[in-house]
Write a protein that binds this DNA or RNA. Structure first.
Lengths: 214, 214
DNA sequence: AGTTAAACACGTACCTTGTACGTAATCAAG
DNA sequence: CTTGATTACGTACAAGGTACGTGTTTAACT
């Protein structure tokens, strides 16, 4: 009894991501997306539960692009690192979508695969229950927060870096010496910064792992 | 030659935060804010550079509420912990504003005070340059990401917790065992979770501190 | 083959929001 | 009192989300 669907979810996801990549988050509009798909605005509502649903769809699309060499028998540290890097890579491939990923909760199975893998790897460090949850929040919060801070924090590396660093130089040097000093260090590549951060994090996970204590 | 200003920035900030706290982020509207202040919509534009400027103002208001016992002579670990907790408390006092805080960059001096303090404390661990930046990003990213994940991540403690946990139980248990298992651990108080996370982080900062190596 | 019911496509129209523009009101200095 | 600059704010427009209604497609049934 159904009529054939004109589009697939993947088509919507691809079109939405293209819009976001090209025109920024404000470019993602029901109307714009519909136009890009060659249909009317209301058609989108047959595939998605309003604007919020669309945002969840985009989040899923990004998270689903996280791929890593899966080796369940390897060391948990190596695996946590691999998964974290994979998520970070996926997120960073669509910087304009980051606010969405931080904000829109997706319970899509695709989006939960990396989450489950991260939990599993952390569990292999001997954690469970509340300890496991804390460790998970540290890693996932770090990834999301790091990716976003790199774009809109006070210490920036990307585009606009000069403008912002210049405005930081206008701050009273007596009150903000470290900020002014560190602003110049933010010119390196984000990949290296992420690795340094992840290293600190893994050191902490290792030092406080139950596996280690017993 | 000027005409007297009808409002102060603090009045705007207070009114905006009340709106956000009471009606959520979508409740923050130029019109709603103006009405609350008893004036016309366009008056706001005399105090703020459009919608973006308003968001920056809110971000500053929240960050400026971070207070902690300042003891420059104390151990850097203790100080990092105190500052991180203070920021987290300030952020958590207005959960609806968190997406804004993550997204809107503020170069306001008020908003940069906690940042400078955190940088200073981390610098006292012997770090500088890129190392210092990495450490800073880890901590600040963790705070922001943690606060947000607690609200919109797949593992949730607050309101809607039952509904979401229930939907997680519908996931295929074979593919998402850890997720389902951990969903029940997310019922504890966020304060404790944050402490656990921060502990892991500090262990990592300590283990990889240059101060420690020489 | 014709009928039917359910699902889908999508045009129209309304409400809300951000904000450009224009005008009136307010004050300090001359 | 006039002047000049600044602020207050009403009006109006453009853009976006989406409720509603209508037409269309398809598979099953008669």
């Amino acid at each position: 009894m159904p009529a054939p669907r004109k589009f697939t979810h993947q088509q919507l996801q691809a079109a939405a991501l293209e819009l976001i990549d090209q025109e920024g988050l404000t470019g993602l509009t029901m109307r714009a997306l519909a136009t890009r798909l060659g249909t009317g605005p209301m058609t989108i509502y047959n595939y998605v539960d309003g604007r919020e649903g669309l945002e969840r769809l985009v989040t899923s699309a990004v998270m689903a692009q996280a791929h890593w060499p899966d080796d369940p028998s390897g060391d948990w540290r190596t695996r946590v690192k691999a998964i974290a890097e994979a998520i970070w890579r996926a997120v960073r491939a669509h910087p304009n979508a980051i606010p969405l990923i931080l904000t829109a909760r997706s319970l899509d199975e695709d989006a939960l695969v990396p989450t489950e893998a991260l939990l599993q790897a952390l569990a292999d460090s001997g954690r469970s229950g509340a300890d496991l949850l804390a460790a998970f929040r540290v890693v996932s919060g770090f990834i999301a927060g790091f990716a976003q801070a790199e774009l809109t924090g006070p210490l920036v590396a990307g585009r606009d870096a000069e403008a912002i660093t210049a405005r930081m130089a206008d701050l009273p040097a007596r009150r903000f010496p470290r900020l002014i000093e560190t602003a110049h260090a933010a010119t390196g590549d984000p990949q290296a910064e992420f690795h340094s951060g992840l290293k600190i994090l893994l050191a902490g996970l290792d030092a406080s792992a139950p596996e280690r204590r017993g």
